[in-house]
């Protein structure tokens, strides 16, 4: 990989184009090993109620702090603008970063974003100095509104969170890429296999955010490495200029000088 091919988001250079979630791993040690094996520079984290006795959050934060990666806190589970904005403010203080993966969820079956609430929350948070990474759909109009609201990166879903279905709407993802050639675009959610991640990169996406596909693999550390490889391969392929697909065959071997003719 070309060493100069770094992703820049909100003025920060990231060498790896894999953003990795930290939930659902079999153990904290496996999480730490998977983060290292993936080569990621950015992991997503969240906030939950802390028990004064158990102090689980404290232990988790010590583990993440030791990994030498940047964190992207999320507002997972928030259903209203108010909840999402307050959660983001709390995350900014505790994680000491203005970066926020903004989720405002409408539907619990699909975890589909409430795009109206998302745009509103993005505007409030951007005005308050946050660097907003909105978890959105592939809708072009919504994407445009999010950019208007101050977002400098967009994170459309590939498929519903945790579904592992890959890229459900390649046509729309390609349109989004063509429409916003200079905006960092990250496929977030729905990735199940390294080939899905490679496909997103081959479409020209700038990065991929995933969690379950690594955490729930038989060997999460090996799968983390496989995703790192796939994302590098897909990125190299995009930079190399993929050929256009066509409907009919076209002989690759030259016909000139063919015998028996």
């Amino acid at each position: 990989m070309n060493a100069d091919d770094k992703l820049t988001v909100y003025g920060v250079e990231l060498a790896s184009r894999l953003f990795l979630g930290t939930a659902q791993y079999p153990s904290p040690a496996i999480l730490a090993d998977a983060v290292k094996a993936s080569g990621t520079n950015l992991v997503t984290v969240s906030l939950r109620r802390e028990s004064a006795n158990v102090r689980a959050g404290h232990a988790f934060w010590q583990l993440i702090s030791g990994l030498g990666v940047r964190v992207l806190p999320n507002t997972a589970g928030c259903h209203t603008v108010k909840e999402a904005v307050t959660t983001a403010q709390m995350a900014r203080e505790i994680f000491n970063t203005p970066w926020i993966k903004l989720e405002v969820i409408r539907d619990d079956d699909t975890l589909q974003p409430d795009v109206f609430g998302l745009v509103e929350a993005a505007r409030i948070l951007s005005a308050d100095g946050f660097c907003v990474f909105p978890y959105t759909t592939e809708d072009l109009g919504v994407a445009d509104r999010l950019l208007d609201a101050g977002c400098q990166v967009l994170m459309p879903w590939g498929a519903p969170i945790g579904s592992g279905r890959g890229l459900n709407n390649i046509y729309a993802l390609r349109s989004l890429r063509a429409h916003f050639p200079d905006v960092p675009l990250v496929v977030d959610a729905g990735i199940g296999l390294p080939s899905h991640a490679a496909q997103a990169m081959e479409l020209g996406y700038d990065a991929v955010l995933l969690n379950t596909a690594v955490a729930k693999a038989g060997d999460p550390v090996a799968m983390a490495r496989a995703f790192g490889d796939a994302i590098r391969a897909g990125r190299s392929a995009w930079r190399a200029g993929p050929m256009e697909a066509r409907d009919m065959a076209a002989a690759s071997t030259p016909m000139l000088g063919m015998a028996f003719r």
Partner: peptide, 10 residues
């Protein structure tokens, strides 16, 4: 009152 701390997230 809500008292929150870091947790695993995706």
């Amino acid at each position: 009152i809500e008292v929150l701390s870091p947790m695993q997230g995706g």
